[in-house]
Design a protein around this nucleic acid. Structure first.
Lengths: 164, 164
DNA sequence: TTGGGTGCAAATCGTTTGCAACAGA
DNA sequence: TCTGTTGCAAACGATTTGCACCCAA
């Protein structure tokens, strides 16, 4: 995990006169240990694996802090739960492709796409500040062979496949 | 309002052995009277304006039906409430630009964008089925003149500006 | 010391559901 | 008639909040 992110969190806390607590430390670690996205409940579980005494309320409150600090982003994976993505620090403009067959989530980014999007928005008289793209798609493997390796997990679990 | 959409709804109901009821009629009318997007609560209000006896439960149930029928799409406007967009029938690939200053929502679509997106996803081995793009941006007018005509409505109300 | 932080449990709020009465086909 | 449909109120589930106690600075 990129140590610079932790620096930024500490700086953010200081700038707002907020405190560096053990709980915030643990939740931060849990959130950025991998670049997997997660729900609030996922993060509570990851956190409790490190320190079982951490409360759900504090996890929610810390998620808000991390978002305010610009370190975490809420992403729309199309389900009913909110998902959070800790990977925008390393890949600022990535989008999400969701396999409608197995629920796999694949991150991708493309400069041509970013540039075109930027142009269109500017031509409309705006200055882009953030964008979020989600594509749902079927995998060719399933289409051709009638099966998909991850089909068992379909819909319920949205597994992440990291960027390149 | 495009009368063909109503046909499609009726055909959908028939195909599923579902019934054409007065409530579904009224809710449908309320949803497609304009091409404005709405929340469930918005739709309940629009519906009650026509027939005050319609219940919240039926509105929610009918929204699900309209989505299953492919006539209505859930869209992500970034807030906490789910929004629904009845305008994908006339503009199948449109995206949403949200002004971070006044909350205005502007629909747009662009063929270059659609094509590039399609190419990228296919190159990754998938066949695209649906995509959702939301861009947040600041309006130049605010940046230059320090004011924006709709600033008063900032954040809370997300007003819609229709396509072209 | 002191103002922010925490855990707990209760409250909130959008959405779903069980059920008895109702109504298309 | 036979099912699907409705309204109501209760249930649900994710998230937020009030509060008394706790602790970083």
């Amino acid at each position: 995990m990129n140590p610079e992110i932790k620096e930024r969190f500490n700086a953010f806390l200081k700038s707002k006169n907020l405190r560096q607590t053990d709980q915030r430390e643990v939740i931060f670690k849990a959130a950025f240990a991998t670049d997997d996205h997660f729900t609030a409940e996922d993060l509570l579980a990851k956190t409790k694996a490190i320190d079982p005494t951490t409360s759900r309320a504090t996890v929610y409150r810390t998620i808000s802090l991390l978002i305010d600090a610009g370190l975490l982003r809420e992403i729309d994976l199309g389900g009913d739960l909110k998902h959070y993505d800790p990977n925008f620090n390393d890949h600022p403009n990535h989008a999400h492709l969701i396999c409608v067959d197995c629920g796999k989530v694949i991150e991708f980014s493309d400069d041509n796409l970013s540039v075109i999007e930027d142009c269109i928005v500017r031509r409309m008289g705006f200055r882009p500040s953030s964008s979020s793209l989600r594509v749902e798609a079927c995998c060719e493997q399933l289409r051709q062979s009638g099966t998909c390796p991850d089909l068992i997990n379909a819909r319920l679990v949205r597994k992440k496949v990291p960027m390149r």
